[in-house]
Amino acid sequence: MTLPSFDKVRSSTDPFPHFRVGGILQDDEADRALHWLRTSAPWALRVESFYEQHEFSLITSELGPEIVDLASPEFITSVRSELRRQFDVKDELELVDVGAHRLTSGQTIRIHNDFLEGRESHRMLIQLNDGWTAEQGGLLMLFGDDQPESLRHVVIPTHGSGFAFEISPRSHHAVSSIRDGERYTLVYTFRRPGEVR
């Protein structure tokens, strides 16, 4: 059974509460999942006001053996427990979805905060991008507000790494345009109990 590793967590509150974790998956686990995403995943294009990407839900889709463990109850429980610990959440967190996102050449996610009152409270990203470099674009950017000039940190979507944050009006972030290659991310979204479904 594949479980995430949180041995290398680095947490911060600048510009909003978040943490990064290297090696959340072992290399072979990340490689297998990435291969399935590249060759067998049921991608569907989604276009919104501030982004365009391909996506699907791991919860409602038929998954191959290469990736099924990453949507297992045990894996999700481990992610949930770490989110509660890192962000000092007293209540249980309810799973909203486990999604997969693919960004291709020219696609961008503009500055946004993911905040929808009462709907989602915490998000964990797992990057699956073997050999990714900053020159390819697709950089996760963290901002102090909704203006580009407030850029605080840039995160390279390193293969098998994780990034988690508390969703709030402050959690402004974006993904820079893809210049080369395809960028893959698994997205674990939770909400506090009693929030709107």
Rank of each mutant, 00 (worst) to 15 (best):
P157Q: 09
R179E: 12
A44N: 11
F190C: 02
T104K: 10
L103G: 02
E29V: 13
V154R: 14
T189I: 09
L83F: 13
F50R: 13
E66P: 02
G138R: 00
V79E: 04
Q127P: 07
I59P: 00
D69V: 11
I111V: 07
R10I: 14
G162M: 02
L151G: 02
T13S: 13
P65E: 11
S161F: 13
P169E: 14
R197N: 09
T13M: 09
L125H: 09
R85T: 10
D97N: 15
P157N: 06
H172M: 03
S40T: 09
V155Q: 02
P169C: 02
D27G: 11
V154G: 02
R110M: 11
I109F: 14
D69H: 12
R123G: 01
L37T: 06
R119A: 10
R20F: 13
E120L: 11
L93G: 02
L93M: 05
D27E: 15
S150V: 05
V21P: 14
S40C: 11
W132E: 04
P73F: 05
L93T: 10
D180K: 13
T2R: 14
R20M: 14
G118Y: 03
N113A: 08
E166V: 01
P17F: 14
S49G: 07
H173I: 04
T104Y: 09
P15S: 01
R10E: 15
E92F: 10
E29M: 06
K90C: 08
Q86W: 08
A134D: 12
T185P: 03
S81T: 12
R197I: 14
Q127R: 05
R197M: 13
T108M: 06
V21H: 03
R179M: 07
G162A: 04
R183Y: 12
A174D: 06
K90F: 10
S150L: 08
I67A: 04
P169K: 08
S150P: 03
R80S: 06
V96S: 09
I178F: 01
H18Q: 08
P169N: 06
L128V: 07
R192N: 15
F6M: 06
R102F: 00
S161W: 12
N129G: 01
E74S: 13
F143P: 10
D88Q: 15
L128I: 09
S11N: 10
L63I: 08
H173R: 04
H159L: 07
F6G: 05
F50K: 13
L116R: 12
I156N: 08
R110L: 11
L128A: 06
S171Y: 01
N129V: 01
M1E: 14
G23H: 02
I156V: 15
F19Y: 03
L45W: 14
R170A: 15
D27P: 08
Q127E: 15
L70A: 01
L25T: 00
H153G: 05
G162W: 03
Q53P: 00
G194S: 05
P73H: 05
H18L: 10
V9A: 11
F87W: 00
Q53G: 00
G137R: 00
Q147T: 15
S161L: 09
L45Y: 12
H172G: 02
T185C: 13
L37G: 00
M141S: 15
